[in-house]
Design a protein around this nucleic acid. Structure first.
Lengths: 352, 352
DNA sequence: TTGTATGCGTTATCAC
DNA sequence: GTGATAACGCATACAA
């Protein structure tokens, strides 16, 4: 036993104000200060006033690491996305933040750069923070990541895809169904030789799903037509790459009458390249995108695309997490939320 | 005193593996496990091997909240930006992440929605996490926020602006100088009646700096020419708003021969609206943007703009933080880093 | 309504 | 090279 109240300088490194100091200042016990903060209505009015005054004058900021340790709740959500600078995921993060911040949850953001291996590593590091929830992009993970998630006993929301067997819950849409709907639209317009262009070797699993839908759609709707796919490699999703893909399509596959891009970013680059090169879209060749980005709807011609509710994915994921957390994470609450997708019939394709 | 090693169920809520359990499994003391993780070279080879094996087989994930509490280091950086979905700040976050993640620092992201009041509130909440560093956007903060920052005794990097008197360090560029350079370029091209269009009532302090530079530039370079500014209100920065601003400019200020937008997003919307409306840019009217976004350089015509190194701001901020943290945050290390800006003379303006 | 005792999982200190 | 012990700052259970 030792005398308390004084500062033994042995370990003390921060000079930040502690709850105990506020208590001393207010002439009450630490417990009362804690209560005054977290359940103000349980404390008498005078005491509350005195404590609040002490908090103000001492400049007390509660140490959430200590709170976390003691209460085993971190009020933290770990979010792993392929890249922050990819605007679609930024929208999702914004959606999460909008829903979670008002409830006192803060977001840890990490980027995987489309690598499942890196996802596992970041996950391991993030789980050390004992988050109250985890949000991932995609439904594919390394066995190691799966094991970590299962062991963590924390609500997990996978996103941007759908599966009947999520780790826990999932909020997204079917990339396969969305791309299928798009190629059906192209077929209905009377196009005869669609090709797919995009980036399929950078680790983006969802792009691969869309490619599979294109391939299956070709065989189903365009029997006899060769299935042609242009791959930008792993150069990154940029308008520059879209421009290059479009040039390549014109040069190597002149028979194609519509180029379906795996992202609006590529498609926008293509439409602008077409304009610069004097190629009429949709007159000479049709173009479709994927994503429903702002820029596509302002282009001349506007883009035919598949609109994906990026922000809503974040909002729904946030709601699912809150529900799971509040409910004490009982298994029954697991959810599969399909946010759907919307075909946008723009001017970059036309009835043939 | 009590017997250790067994689990008293009274408080225990997590069933996650603890360091002590790993120690028991390996037949060593907890301290040795801790060392094996953090200073592997201090532990004997056999012990190290045994501990690592125990970590693997138990699935141990260190609790960083406890580590934080004991070591008084959180390996956490608090980042407050106006909005995640604004791509420029997402780039900055990406830059921060790139530099900091390899050093084991994780990012807490919060959004202020361009409100200084909200910045203060989020800051208060974030400081409770005891971050090892703080990154803010802008050099203007509420007195309350200033007080919090000073009391926190943590490296702080302000960004996206410059000042001679930062709270601590600052990484950015002069919005005033950048806009001044742009209007000088417009003047050199022979334009006679520039107007400014953008959003100046949404709380974006940096946009106000640019507006001030425009106003001063007008008086200096275009004496006698009325200073006209179109404000989009607080509707948000979107291509839609850019389109509307352009229409308004054509309708209300037909004498203007160049519209200077406060963001490339507005300018891109304007250029595309001009195309749709059959207005020749730069033939009938010139357009400039601000930011140097990807889309602007692919438009037809390409955008005359001021390129801002968003990502580099994040990278430099990360480096400054690392340096400050490693050096024990001694005041001498404070830095003022000017990342500069680059004029991009595009096709949307022409010699008159 | 308020106070006391104790544990949360880790690291720092110091002894061996 | 390894271990025992005492913090770190707060929240929970229980007592008063």
């Amino acid at each position: 036993m030792h005398a308390d109240g004084d500062r033994r300088s042995s370990r003390r490194s921060t000079r930040s104000v502690t709850l105990a100091e506020v208590a001393a200042h207010a002439g009450v016990s630490p417990q009362t200060v804690s209560r005054a903060i977290r359940q103000p209505d349980v404390v008498s009015a005078e005491t509350l006033e005195r404590v609040q005054e002490s908090i103000r004058s001492t400049g007390y900021v509660p140490n959430l690491a200590a709170s976390n340790l003691a209460s085993n709740r971190s009020r933290t959500i770990a979010v792993l996305i392929p890249a922050v600078s990819a605007s679609v995921f930024a929208e999702t993060v914004q959606g999460l933040e909008t829903v979670l911040a008002p409830h006192g949850y803060h977001l840890f953001i990490g980027t995987t750069e489309y690598s499942l291996q890196q996802e596992e590593e970041m996950l391991r590091a993030f789980l050390g923070r004992r988050p109250d929830g985890v949000v991932l992009v995609g439904t594919e993970h390394t066995p190691g990541a799966q094991a970590l998630l299962n062991a963590a006993r924390v609500p997990v929301v996978e996103s941007w895809e759908l599966t009947q067997h999520p780790v826990d819950s999932v909020v997204g849409f079917s990339n396969y169904a969305a791309m299928s709907a798009l190629i059906e639209h192209v077929h209905a317009l009377g196009y005869r030789f669609p090709i797919l262009a995009g980036q399929f070797s950078g680790g983006d699993v969802r792009a691969l799903r869309r490619r599979a839908a294109f391939e299956d759609g070709m065989r189903r709707l365009f029997p006899g037509v060769p299935v042609r796919i242009l791959d930008a490699g792993s150069a990154g999703v940029s308008m520059d790459a879209g421009r290059d893909l479009f040039r390549q399509a014109r040069a190597d596959l002149p028979q194609a009458d519509v180029v379906m891009f795996s992202s609006d970013v590529f498609a926008a680059g293509a439409v602008l390249e077409a304009m610069r090169a004097g190629v009429a879209v949709p007159g000479e060749i049709g173009v479709t995108g994927f994503g429903g980005f702002d820029v596509g709807q302002h282009l001349v011609p506007t883009l035919t695309t598949m609109l994906v509710p990026s922000r809503r994915i974040g909002e729904e994921a946030g709601r699912v997490l809150l529900e799971r957390i509040e409910s004490g994470n009982r298994p029954a609450a697991a959810a599969i939320v399909d946010v759907g997708h919307t075909l946008v019939a723009g001017e970059s394709t036309a009835q043939q």
